[in-house]
């Protein structure tokens, strides 16, 4: 048993990838003809925003933190983009969306890093604030034109040569940046270090607040980016756009092997986790189960995986 646990622990990504392949196999068996290049392309397309959100979440989990405001930030960024494009043009509206991500990220960072507020409490608070602010804002601008720039629609739903999802061209570079950044840069090293032992970091001369601030800022920006991709997929910005993504984003990181206690994990596992959850969702949709049943199954499978993983590794 201990040997098996050791094996699984060292190869958790591999195990999850096998589970992912098994899931695809199940779909191919129960609905022959479903698994086509087109289905694959769609899966990747839908996995991209989840992968971006889970990327930010991974950075924070590594530091021992968490961000519950990402869904509100993603929604807010998408909403700002669609309601301002007509007035100020696409580039400025995009920047406005990203600025919201940076602002909330910084706010979270200052709260957690400087004022030592619990990350859970801080980001729950800023998430609610963002949500509320967006409702107020939507009532103010009622009747104004909502427009999603064509470029964003292409980014979110276009496929190059009819096969390769365009949003991959955003997700892949971001993924490469996160993977390399975590492994090969000083900041990446520090995210793990801070999550493992803040007191030790301080003793080694590291100003921990800077590292945390950078992590929360990056997470806010990634959330805004995810919101922009998401609104390109749905082609309509409403005020609950990204709500369903909050828990899957955290779950993708955890089943991908990132410890919620900090100091261990990485983005590679999170990518597989995001793909796994996207395929699981598509399997449950294929089963034609009623929505509540779907939710129960989805929740229990995530719980089972996360619990198994935690047991095996600690």
């Amino acid at each position: 048993m201990t040997r098996l646990a050791g094996f699984l622990r060292d190869r958790s990504i591999l195990v999850l990838a096998l589970l992912l392949a098994a899931l695809v196999g199940v779909i191919a068996v129960i609905r022959p003809g479903t698994v086509t290049p087109d289905w694959l392309a769609n899966t990747l397309l839908f996995a991209a925003p989840l992968g971006l959100l889970a990327g930010g979440e991974t950075l924070l989990l590594l530091t021992g933190g968490i961000d519950l405001s990402i869904a509100a930030v993603a929604t807010g960024a998408a909403y700002l983009l669609s309601s301002n494009t007509a007035a100020i043009g696409t580039p400025a509206a995009l920047l406005l969306g990203l600025a919201l991500g940076a602002l909330i990220g910084l706010l979270n960072g200052v709260g957690v890093a400087v004022f030592r507020v619990q990350p859970l409490v801080m980001t729950l608070g800023t998430g609610l604030m963002t949500e509320g602010a967006m409702v107020v804002y939507s009532q103010k601008i009622i009747g104004e034109e909502q427009r999603i720039p064509a470029a964003i629609v292409t980014l979110g739903s276009g496929k190059l040569a009819g096969v390769v999802p365009v949003d991959l061209f955003l997700w892949l570079p971001v993924a490469a940046l996160l993977l390399l950044g975590l492994r090969r840069t000083g900041l990446g090293r520090l995210l793990y270090a801070v999550g493992d032992n803040q007191a030790a970091c301080r003793l080694a001369g590291i100003r921990v607040w800077r590292v945390l601030l950078a992590a929360y800022l990056a997470c806010g920006l990634l959330a805004a980016l995810a919101g922009i991709v998401l609104v390109g997929i749905t082609n309509a910005a409403d005020l609950s756009l990204a709500n369903v993504y909050l828990l899957p984003a955290i779950a993708a990181a955890i089943i991908g092997g990132t410890s919620i206690f900090g100091g261990r994990g990485g983005y590679g596992g999170t990518i597989v986790g995001a793909l796994f959850l996207t395929v699981l969702d598509s399997l449950l949709t294929l089963l034609d189960a009623p929505e509540p049943i779907k939710q129960i199954l989805y929740g229990s499978i995530i719980l089972l995986l996360a619990a198994t993983y935690t047991r095996l590794t600690d």
Partner: peptide
């Protein structure tokens, strides 16, 4: 108090080497 228990010997020894912003 001084160590990163889950990280490698390499990372633990190299920890002060990344302490400045310029080392990020």
């Amino acid at each position: 108090q001084a160590l990163l228990p889950q990280r490698s010997v390499q990372e633990n020894i190299a920890l002060p080497l990344v302490r400045r912003l310029a080392d990020w």
